[in-house]
Amino acid sequence: MNKPFDMELFLAGVLTGSHATRQRHVRQAKIIQAEIIERWQRETPWSWQRKHLLWFLEHRLGRRSEATRYYYLLTLRLIVHRLEKEWTFII
């Protein structure tokens, strides 16, 4: 039996700011993870590619407000930083 991936532990090393900000990033990262699992069956960020995160931004946040897209973009940047990748995203 596999233990579910702990997104909070994954982001712990790169999370900064207030408690509410850290919780928002964790909550949004779990939403991103759930969408990618549903679409591509890729459970951990270590198996994600740039195209998966770009798909999330374009198709899942396309109709959301600019502010919502911005906050998700900040969370995506934290994930990318934790993965030690040099991917960039523009909203």
Rank of each mutant, 00 (worst) to 15 (best):
M1G: 13
D6N: 14
M7V: 12
M7S: 01
E8N: 09
L9K: 12
F10V: 04
T16S: 13
G17K: 01
G17S: 06
S18Y: 07
H19G: 10
R22A: 04
R22T: 00
V26F: 01
Q28V: 04
A29Q: 08
A29D: 08
K30T: 08
K30S: 07
K30M: 10
I31G: 01
I32L: 06
I37S: 00
E38D: 11
R39E: 12
W40V: 01
Q41M: 04
R42N: 01
T44M: 10
W46A: 14
S47R: 13
K51A: 13
H52F: 01
E58L: 13
H59F: 12
L61Y: 03
R64A: 12
E66G: 10
E66R: 12
A67M: 12
A67C: 10
R69A: 11
R69G: 15
Y70K: 15
Y71I: 10
Y71G: 01
Y72T: 08
Y72P: 06
Y72C: 07
L74H: 10
L74T: 09
T75P: 00
T75R: 01
L78R: 09
L78H: 09
V80P: 07
H81G: 07
L83K: 03
E84N: 11
E84I: 00
K85P: 02
E86T: 11
W87P: 03
T88D: 12
I90D: 11
